[in-house]
């Protein structure tokens, strides 16, 4: 190690630390203000309080929104995980030409701004005179989530030993049996991980929801509407709670996706 090398490493480490602070500090500000005993979120902070959390628990509007969010996220999770997992298996086992065409095609929703996904659906529902509701929200969220599921499950499929399937087929298993008895158990960590990703993706989504919902609101669209009238401290409490919920799910998803790597034969 030369001296120059060590100075370089130190500079890079310091820079990385700064970037991590930049990424995390704003989120801590929200958490801090959620306990701040003041109607207006301004520094310096006043005393500690839990009243904004109580406000949230007493608010009919916010609790309904929370219920709607959970409902939509759950439905999106089931649909997106099913479609995405099947598609990932189908893609991995189809010919090179099908793959070359289908893979980029099925990932385009990921490469499209959420706003465009939302208004394109709104436009179509409008042309068909369809009633907007939580169902149409679920439709939109599933479009957004499926490519992520395909991505995660594909990553796991690539690492699987093809001989396991060959052995099963040689021993007389039908194609359906191979998928149900061999592939799905092997893919379980990735499938569960991607399910959690789909859930959080839906739970956090605001733009697609905003344009595809009827009269019902989810938690993000309620926060969005509240922010239009200015910052109220309840928003900090609600944001903190959703952050905690999604981060717990995220760590679970990561642990799950990683856990499948080593053992399991």
């Amino acid at each position: 190690m030369t001296r120059e090398h060590r100075i370089g490493t130190f500079t890079l480490a310091a820079w990385t630390a700064l970037v991590v602070l930049f990424l995390l500090l704003p989120l801590f500000v929200i958490v801090a203000f959620s306990f701040n005993d003041s109607d207006f979120p301004s520094f310096p902070m006043r005393g500690l309080t839990l009243k904004w959390y109580w406000r949230f628990l007493e608010s009919e509007e916010l609790l309904t929104a929370l219920w709607n969010s959970a409902l939509v996220a759950f439905a999106t999770m089931i649909l997106a995980t099913t479609f995405g997992t099947l598609a990932a298996i189908g893609l991995a086992r189809s010919g090179a030409r099908t793959q070359k065409f289908m893979r980029p095609l099925l990932s385009t929703p990921m490469m499209t701004p959420r706003l465009v996904v939302g208004i394109a659906l709104l436009n179509m529902f409008n042309l068909l005179s369809m009633q907007l509701s939580l169902l149409t929200v679920i439709v939109g969220h599933t479009v957004v989530a499926v490519p992520y599921v395909i991505l995660v499950v594909t990553a796991r499929l690539v690492g699987l030993d093809p001989r396991i399937e060959e052995a099963a087929t040689d021993l007389g298993a039908t194609r359906t049996r191979v998928i149900i008895d061999i592939l799905l158990p092997l893919l379980r960590p990735a499938v569960l991980g991607s399910a959690l990703i789909a859930f959080t993706l839906s739970f956090d989504e605001v733009v697609v929801t905003f344009f595809t919902t009827g009269t019902e609101n989810t938690l993000p669209t309620t926060i969005w509407a509240m922010l239009r009238y200015g910052i109220t401290p309840e928003i900090n409490a609600v944001s903190t709670l959703t952050m905690i919920a999604t981060v717990v799910l995220a760590l679970g998803a990561e642990a799950m996706i990683r856990s499948g790597g080593v053992h399991r034969r």
Partner: peptide, 17 residues
């Protein structure tokens, strides 16, 4: 980690900062 929190919440955080 921040990727898992909603972009709405992250935008809102900057209003406070």
């Amino acid at each position: 980690l921040p990727l898992w929190t909603s972009y709405l919440v992250r935008s809102f955080a900057w209003m406070l900062v």
